[in-house]
Design a protein around this nucleic acid. Structure first.
Lengths: 340, 340
DNA sequence: TTGAAAGCGCTAACAC
DNA sequence: GTGTTAGCGCTTTCAA
């Protein structure tokens, strides 16, 4: 039978409240008594009962806000599913969660949503930031009012956000390099088709080329092109690539427009001849993976990308304790048609 | 602000207790009133508060028992770590958990531990079963007394266990075949070194050969040997294999004795020339994976193998609702040195 | 068939 | 500095 506050109180000859004060270091308390209580708690193997805590917190009506941009894209819709999952879970603890969606990008609206949430006294906000000084300022305001901010999917530097939750993009790129390098037979030409110049894409490129250069000496990385995340551009880039390097053996795709690139491969009957590793493909349980046109997907379930940040905040709010690192990385999976 | 029982009670003009009875279908209640309450709960979007529930449950002092055989092996010690992790978590809810360890295998002791747990009125037991009729009988006794049983790592048929939690071993074998097939270049000779004739090993063999035969027509699977999970035998098997097939291109290892097999490869300077995929290597963040002697590991963290069964039981006990399937499969990961 | 009341472990406001 | 008390949402016993 687990030890309770009351039992410690009895053992120490004080009241529950005093034990609570001692253990949580809050309020005024006689240092000697505090010391004794802490020792006792340790000895008796006290583990705070999380339900009791959560229940007592219910009075405070903890609210979490989430702001999503590009809500119309498949990728963000995947993330939203993860958020709904987290929402169902935190609601079981009496915590409420509000999601604001923005179609396309509009930093002014992001900030005005944040202001609104501040006025409504939310306890925390999760958002996908872009690099913007007004946003920095708003994050500053929030955190100075005690509102915790978690960034996810991408990050913003020089802010007092609690932490970033998402992918270790360099590791993603490295993982992709390893698997692509191995399946092309450790030699020949490979290319990467990347999205934009944003930090996350940049990091993937760095990780990818690092490993290719370092461990796959017989492989030539013939280029990294950028699509701006536009489907039509992706198709064009792929075509150019195939014309320029007819002997290409592998491609690492990390951009919107995977379907279009696959189509180009199929038109030229190069599917299954050129090895394809795709980053984070939304809907990656897709036909292309099953039929072998795509060989491997490097992914953390987009689900997780929505779920994890919320749960990080929730755990923080209910445990009164910050995440251990400033970066909370989700797990990077190698997915083939056999372990989808 | 989430809806509470009290709010529904107010809306329905009854007491909390009545609402509880209606929603949980327990006790005597006027069917019409019950109907009305259910409708109301639905309309108002009632989500039971999990903390309240857990707290009220605390009186019942829910206890979970775990029985581990082969507690001296590295693999089971990994599992035990996962169990400790789960233990810490369930204790936060006032649930207590007892682990009994058996060194080597001793079905009589397993059963006597179960009897003891039955007498102590545990709510549930998690164990790794072997195929044994006395064990079947004991499981029957437990479940007829309302004690829920979860099997993990391996399973036992024809019993009233709640569910099996663990690996989909066929899928493991398939995944291994895919990755090994791809990295040897889709042609040449490969072999599998398996452990025993137990169900789990058998399934891996089936999955492995199925995919090789079906999708890698130019690959010849030259044999599946069995080590009985003995390290020295593993080494011998490996040597024989290398002598018999000097042109061997890949091995799928699914047995105790991976280290010994690796040593054999190193002695013959075949490491990094022969591709190696290892199943579930305990301590797979090991040197061999990092230095490239082992190419890939197919694994679900052994941690998970301990953690997941306990949490399944816990969730069942606290939610009053059985897992959706009879088989709860843990995720199968492909691990390379870059995503360890 | 229903309601009232106690209590699970914890927090926080208030009194001393 | 410390104790008392009320109450979070739920389950359960006992009484009506």
């Amino acid at each position: 039978m687990p030890v309770t506050l009351q039992q410690i109180a009895n053992a120490a000859g004080v009241s529950r409240a005093t034990v609570d004060r001692a253990l949580k270091n809050r309020g005024r308390i006689n240092p000697e008594v505090a010391e004794k209580i802490k020792r006792l708690a340790e000895e008796m193997g006290y583990v705070p009962n999380i339900s009791g805590r959560a229940l007592a917190f219910a009075k405070r009506n903890i609210q979490i806000g989430v702001i999503l941009q590009f809500a119309e894209t498949a990728f963000v819709q995947d993330i939203a599913r993860g958020i709904e999952q987290a929402k169902a879970q935190v609601e079981q603890f009496g915590c409420s969660l509000t999601v604001m969606r923005i179609y396309g990008t509009d930093i002014k609206r992001v900030i005005s949503y944040m202001e609104e949430m501040r006025i409504n006294h939310v306890s925390a906000i999760a958002l996908i930031p872009i690099d913007d000084d007004d946003l920095r300022q708003e994050i500053h305001k929030c955190s100075s009012e005690g509102i915790k901010i978690v960034t996810f999917n991408s990050d913003i530097d020089n802010t007092e956000r609690l932490c970033f939750v998402g992918q270790d993009a360099i590791k993603s790129g490295r993982t992709a390099a390893g698997i692509l390098g191995d399946i092309v037979g450790r030699e020949g030409r490979v290319a990467m088709i990347s999205g934009t110049n944003s930090a996350i894409h940049k990091k993937r490129e760095i990780g990818f080329s690092e490993i290719i250069h370092k461990y796959y000496k017989k492989i030539e990385l013939v280029g990294i092109s950028h699509t701006g995340n536009r489907e039509s551009v992706a198709a064009n880039q792929a075509e150019e690539l195939l014309i320029r390097y007819p002997d290409l053996k592998g491609i690492y795709i990390s951009t919107e427009g995977t379907e279009e690139i696959i189509k180009v491969l199929e038109e030229r009957r190069l599917n299954r001849k050129i090895k394809v590793v795709v980053q984070d493909m939304t809907g990656w349980k897709s036909k292309s993976l099953i039929d072998g046109t795509i060989d491997y997907v490097i992914a953390d379930d987009a689900n997780i990308q929505g779920y994890e940040p919320i749960m990080t905040l929730f755990n923080y709010l209910y445990h009164d304790k910050a995440p251990e690192q400033e970066f909370v990385y989700t797990e990077i999976r190698i997915v083939s048609r056999y372990n989808v």
